[in-house]
Design a protein around this nucleic acid. Structure first.
Lengths: 226, 226
DNA sequence: GAGGGACGTTACAAAACTGTAACGGTGATC
DNA sequence: GATCACCGTTACAGTTTTGTAACGTCCCTC
């Protein structure tokens, strides 16, 4: 789970960011209200990303930024800077930003979200959350879990692979042979009830959403969102 | 990264598609403004997908489509056709579309996105594949398998999650408590040898690559590429 | 509506997985 | 180098998972 340090003296903005980030993704958030606080937490927590408002009391935001860049423990952490539109913005454009980014206030939460996601992806390519969604179904490839209707449904490894195969092409019928190949590695047209049995087990766990796995007689199975 | 060729004489539409595709996903886009241009680029670039507006100047879109289908170099490339609602639409419905698809104008960008994604997934199943790599290690999140040194190593669900947690942040020491939280969902600072046992099991399966899981005494474990 | 093929269901035994306890090593600290 | 905390290892039993056989049911075709 990526961790993010938010540095801003205005509680409103911290709140705004926190709510939007937390709602969209799974981030662990830390907050700091002034420059010293920020530097300390950056060094100790080593967050994956810092969102830094340049308008800070006492210590100037750009000074904070430069200090972050000079300390070995923090210099690799990407920073998104928030600036009021105007002179400060020009100064930043003069900076060699490297992996960093900035955003002029007022900013849209969506825009911020996008930059956060991009920056995290750029600097830590494997971090992207990994969820396959289809309708109310949400398969988490990292946790090997299914989220459905607010519930968290445990799946065994085989069930997971089978459901993943189906859910990756909603509405498309997958042939029995293909599923046996994908999930079990069977290469021949083996005659077995194994697939059927696992389909049944899956269906049992998904009863709350009607018949999301349809049988296509003579062909295979098809997933649909409900 | 999947590459897509957009064939349309209207710059507005090319722009609209480009903006929406690029924003949502990671596609490499090429553009063509007429049929000849399109055929040439299709043959030379061999994109993963072609979005073809049937209303083209000079060469009729359906002719372009048929030519694409006839050339060995391009006949496997899926095509999404854009049509004005009306007569052309009927003609297309008469076609045997195979892997292809079509969309009536005006279309919603979201709809187009969905079709693009589905078509790419269907025709190039590896596109949805999901691999975390670090050095010679390659964790396949779909198959729940580890590829290492040409070998395919089976992992249990727990081993998979544990290795994934470690491999996602190579070089970073993960604390015991964090790993127990991530993999087992334990929230308290539980005292257990479970983590150690699974680390051992993982190490056994990775012996061919030296000690890729290092112990950091008093803290936790760290993954490094070997 | 009889027959046959395809899918659904159940029960079960084998295999795999998992956490724990117990004990053995090892490194750090004084 | 004694002590202690921490980690490694082993063995094992409980649990879960898994594939299969056997049988039931449904649907299609004639």
């Amino acid at each position: 789970m990526p961790s993010i340090l938010i540095v801003d003296d205005e509680e409103d903005i911290r709140e705004l960011i926190a709510v939007n980030l937390l709602r969209e993704e799974n981030y662990k958030l830390t907050e700091a209200v002034n420059g010293l606080d920020a530097l300390e937490k950056a060094k100790s927590d080593r967050p994956d990303l810092i969102i830094l408002d340049l308008m800070l009391p006492e210590m100037d935001g750009l000074t904070v930024y430069k200090t972050i860049r000079e300390d070995a423990r923090t210099q690799d952490i990407p920073v998104i800077m928030l600036t009021a539109r105007g002179r400060l913005e020009e100064k930043i454009e003069g900076l060699e930003l490297g992996a960093d980014d900035y955003l002029s206030k007022p900013f849209s939460p969506k825009e911020l979200m996008l930059r956060v996601r991009n920056l995290l992806r750029r600097t830590n390519p494997n971090t992207g959350s990994n969820v396959v969604e289809s309708g109310p179904f949400s398969l988490d490839k990292n946790a090997l879990k299914l989220h459905l209707d607010g519930e968290e449904i445990e799946l065994t490894a085989t069930e997971f692979k089978l459901l993943l195969s189906l859910i990756e092409s909603p509405g498309i019928t997958q042939e029995r042979a293909d599923l046996l190949k994908k999930v079990w590695g069977y290469s021949d047209m083996i005659q077995t009830r194994t697939l059927d049995t696992h389909i049944k087990r899956l269906r049992e766990k998904l009863t709350q959403y009607g018949n999301s796995i349809e049988t296509v007689r003579g062909v295979g199975y098809r997933f649909s969102e409900g």
